[in-house]
Design a protein around this nucleic acid. Structure first.
Lengths: 235, 235
DNA sequence: AAGTGGTCTAGACCACGTC
DNA sequence: ACGTGGTCTAGACCACTTG
């Protein structure tokens, strides 16, 4: 009497099977799944294989895992997507355009109180404030308003940023550990409108980014794009 | 003569060390890295450990890996971020608001040619066109304009969408394999302005989403948010 | 043809957090 | 305290692709 049991020998197969069971409500949201050891036996594979499948599902937000507490189907019916944090130069080249960078303004400042709270800074530190424009085929593509924390990146004081954009410079000089990115829409104020060659009040796409290293906040930047700009995820 | 060699026994340590070497330009962009076997020996750990570290780095876009060709430091100095594809109900509850859903309009249509090309549809299929509003504490929070492909989701024809939002219904009924999300900013037209209670021309944040299953495009949706809305990544 | 990453296994030990 | 996931190991075979 040979038990005929389907075998899921690869982590992809295991993952697909788990997803299937979730889909058909074999396992519904909130339900506690069997432990890895048990699933491995069910599926006829090693625990490591189940683990890999589960780890990816957890990574995608489909299940929640906690030691001792086990694995549950995620309650929040949500999915995750990813996108590349874009570098203007790369972005423009990908569009097939000619990239040009222009520094508007660079000054060393003591941060304003509001900036201090935003950057989580002590009041007595210094920052570099940079404003710049990025062109695509000589049309303004992005207006950049940036502060760099000199406590964390002191050698930024020696960089003029006249020939290289701060994004690019920072990326090669100060690799970051963590970043938070925010997207929003806003109306162009006078300054931005004039730099981006728009009417005042035109809808602009804004991305804000804050990056940290072990030592603290590296930089905060607000980037404004004229209408027509689209940001797309992959996957 | 005991060789004193640092040992990197965990995949996190290995990953950190590789990142460090990339940072200090031991390995610069485009460079071919040693094979896993060699690194494993260097690091004093199993190949699987190096593999795990490398896999994550590849996943984060820091290195590119190809069989036989080996692993290279990525040329594109870019990083990846992730965000949750939000469900209005979840989003509003997370903000601590009271969620309310309102169907504006639901009709079965033959898709227009422009929609056909957008949805990659044949001309003779049918779609459901839905427009709806999502409220947060009785303030309009999101205007939804959606098309559902009846070839892929025929049973959507039986759903009135009067009491449940299409995002929610689709998420539980038709799990998707893939999604493409686009963000942009635009000026509110008359329709959107009136539904979102804005002045015509106000800047709105738009996210568009297209989702696929094995059988083809499930749905295309355009969501409009009034000024003030922000979308934030985690990690 | 050969070298690289991709994956699986069986076993082991450990860390964590719930019970 | 103890069961769960987290991770490492050593070895093996395979798939892909490039030289």
């Amino acid at each position: 009497m040979d038990e005929k049991k389907p075998i899921f020998g690869t982590y992809r197969a295991v993952k697909a099977e788990i997803l299937r069971r979730i889909r058909v409500r074999d396992w519904s949201p909130g339900i506690l799944l069997p432990p890895e050891t048990e699933l491995a036996e069910d599926f006829g594979c090693a625990r490591a294989t189940v683990n890999r499948a589960m780890r990816e599902l957890a990574d995608e937000g489909i299940v929640d895992r906690r030691r001792r507490a086990g694995t549950r189907v995620s309650e929040a019916l949500t999915r995750r997507a990813r996108f590349d944090i874009p570098l203007p130069k790369t972005e423009i080249k990908a569009l097939g355009g000619q990239y040009r960078y222009m520094l508007i303004d660079r000054r060393e400042e003591y941060p304003s109180p509001v900036l201090c709270s935003k950057l989580e800074l002590a009041g007595d530190c210094r920052v570099i404030h940079i404003r710049a424009l990025h062109f695509c085929d000589d049309k303004p593509f992005q207006y950049e308003d940036r502060w760099i924390n000199l406590d964390v990146v002191p050698y930024a004081a020696k960089q003029s940023f006249e020939n290289i954009g701060p994004s690019e410079w920072l990326l090669t000089e100060v690799p970051f550990l963590e970043a938070k990115v925010t997207f929003s829409a806003s109306a162009a104020d006078n300054t931005i409108a004039s730099y981006l060659d728009l009417e005042c009040g035109a809808p602009i796409f804004i991305t804000e980014r804050m990056t940290w290293s072990e030592k603290g906040v590296i930089t905060f930047v607000q980037m404004s794009y004229p209408p027509g700009y689209k940001l797309t995820t992959h996957l």
